[in-house]
């Protein structure tokens, strides 16, 4: 495009370059802590707390081994008496005069996070898309009031309901259960999900599903085969937001779970090593903790982008 015929809609070269710089700077600022955590997870405990901080270090998997195991320190004599180590992680641990005494609880906590995070995300999307469809298409009595009411559940700080919720859960036997946490996170996420999905479904012309109904589908079939595929972008966005919230949620997890259904967030900061926090282990746990959401978002990204370009053809 020549300078004389510059479009007033298309941003100019300089504007684009400035925008690129701003985005790059922002990405850098947000990525540094994450890179630092990933780096720390591969450090030895001494490197992790070294001052000035070490940028170059010899990588080790000690942190990861420590996250998944419990160990005990032994006397040098005892160490001498042991047969040669069978595995690389046995060897790694013995360098510090320790032996592995069993698995840690991190695996369980991680599994809890997966069950509760994906469970509530699934439930949120299913209930959310059904509710949003109903609000969008049917003459629901008091629709506007109900929509506002749903949104209003997000208007107070979560702490405000901590005590009633705690008591309620104790009485109902939902404390420290997977089901209890799934219900709680679904309830919190549903308001956003209904609003978000209703917006997307409102955009899909009714004629599509009506044509399908006239042509042979029941309403539910039309919903499944016509509306759902067109609402992909909204569903992907809702799923990502829901998962991020329930995956990272800390306060209610601390309050309502302890043994059985505890998720990873309340567990990770408590990983204690010798002489205080085991920073590489904490970093290793955090790195592993980031992965599922990252993967989920990357996997769903194509639906997000597809949704933006899916205009109605008239």
């Amino acid at each position: 495009m020549s300078d004389t015929a510059r479009s007033i809609v298309e941003p100019g070269k300089r504007a684009k370059r400035v925008a690129g710089l701003v985005v790059a700077a922002y990405a850098l600022v947000t990525l540094i802590p994450i890179l630092w955590i990933v780096g720390t997870s591969f450090k030895s405990p001494n490197d992790a707390i070294a001052y000035p901080p070490k940028v170059f270090f010899e990588p080790t998997l000690e942190g990861y081994v420590n996250v998944f195991t419990t160990r005990s320190r032994q006397s040098p004599e005892y160490m001498e008496s042991l047969p040669p180590p069978e595995t690389w992680y046995d060897k790694l641990v013995r360098q510090r005069n320790m032996v592995i005494t069993g698995p840690s609880r991190f695996g369980d906590r991680y599994l809890n996070s997966l069950i509760i995070g994906f469970g509530s995300t699934f439930l949120t999307v299913v209930l959310g898309v059904l509710a949003a469809y109903a609000f969008s298409r049917f003459r629901v009595p008091l629709r506007d009031d109900l929509m506002f009411f749903i949104l209003s559940t997000r208007m107070f700080p979560p702490v405000a309901v901590a005590i009633p919720l705690f008591l309620m859960y104790r009485e109902l036997g939902l404390s420290d259960t997977h089901l209890g946490m799934i219900i709680l996170y679904t309830a919190v996420n549903l308001s956003l999900a209904v609003w978000l999905l209703k917006g997307f479904i409102d955009e899909i012309p009714r004629e599509y599903e009506e044509a399908a109904m006239v042509d042979g589908y029941t309403r539910f079939q039309a919903f499944r085969k016509v509306v759902l595929p067109q609402a992909k972008a909204g569903i992907a966005a809702t799923a990502i937001f829901s998962l991020i919230f329930s995956w990272n949620e800390y306060n209610f997890a601390v309050l309502l779970t302890s043994g059985n259904a505890q998720t990873a967030p309340p567990f990770i900061p408590l990983i204690i090593g010798e002489g205080g926090l085991d920073w590489p282990a904490v970093a290793a746990a955090t790195t592993l903790f980031i992965l599922p959401v990252l993967l989920f978002t990357v996997l769903l990204r194509k639906y997000l982008l597809a949704g933006i370009t899916f205009g109605a053809v008239r």
């Binding site: 004629e207 599509y208 044509a211 109904m213 006239v214 042509d215």
Partner: peptide, 19 residues
Amino acid sequence: RPARRDIAFVFQLFALYPH
């Protein structure tokens, strides 16, 4: 329900599936 009536409807916006 509509499907049982065996009638065809041509919509103003055509309602063709773009995909």
